[in-house]
């Protein structure tokens, strides 16, 4: 028994040590990133389509500030608060892990051009898992719904996932102001550095509006 105890204890201690530098089976990337609308809305022979220079408006209503995010397949529903870039261009994350941030200089919910950028905690040391704990598991085709300040709901479908090393920084292509209407949701993932208490990767999920 003494031997078994020593063995199990040793395995446990080794496992704890390994978790600091675990080899991660990171989720795979899928989908593509469109940094600019290939064909911006322009004149067509169909009168119901937008005129040149006029941004089309979704049937769900005019674009408006998003105030709540719902991800049905993850059983997630959380309020949004406005956030901004800090002095080093890092997007501030709401302190409460159960609140998601909306970059206030990004596109409005329901915009058919530009990127609506959200971020939220995967977890915190103090409060455990956050609203976006399972974001990295969200598959292509999953639905994300934004409720806007005007009372309208805007539905998006996941098209793309990227797992990106923080050391290389996030590309501006992910947040293009000229992309066809896109929702970008960002959190952390990948290996965790216990010395700095930071994850080494960012998880970015992109979604496109569902036609109204």
């Amino acid at each position: 028994m003494l031997g078994a105890g020593l063995l199990v204890a040793a395995v446990g201690v080794e496992s704890v040590a390994l978790s600091h530098y675990s080899a991660h089976a990171v989720p795979r990337d899928f989908g593509s990133v469109a940094s600019s609308a290939a064909t911006p809305p322009g004149p067509t022979s169909t009168s119901s389509l937008p005129a040149p220079g006029i941004v089309p408006v979704q049937d769900a209503g005019s674009p408006a500030a998003p105030v709540r995010i719902t991800i049905p397949s993850l059983h997630v529903s959380a309020p949004l608060m406005k956030v901004e870039l800090d002095a080093v261009s890092s997007l501030v994350v709401p302190q409460d892990p159960h609140v998601v941030g909306w970059w206030q200089a990004s596109a409005l919910a329901g915009s058919q051009i530009g990127t609506t950028v959200l971020d939220g905690h995967v977890d915190t040391a103090e409060q455990g898992p956050g609203t976006l704990f399972h974001l990295q598991d969200l598959p292509a085709g999953a639905t994300i719904v934004l409720r806007a300040a005007n009372g309208h709901y805007y539905t998006y479908r996941v098209t793309t996932r990227r797992v990106l090393k923080k050391s290389t920084g996030l590309s501006a292509r992910l947040f293009s102001p000229t992309a066809p209407g896109t929702l970008a949701v960002v959190t952390c993932g990948g290996p965790f550095d216990r010395a700095t208490h930071h994850y080494l990767d960012n998880i970015v999920v992109l979604a496109r509006p569902v036609a109204g």
Binding site: S90, H121, L170, A172, S176, T187
Partner: peptide, 30 residues
């Protein structure tokens, strides 16, 4: 203004792929 260069959105380590499982199992086994 192209967008955020980084996002620091985790300090718990519980979502580390395999890491959290290893961590919990590790402490439990210990």
């Amino acid at each position: 203004g192209g967008g955020p260069g980084s996002v620091q959105a985790g300090s718990g380590g519980q979502a580390a792929t395999n890491g959290s499982t290893d961590l919990r199992l590790g402490w439990s086994a210990g």
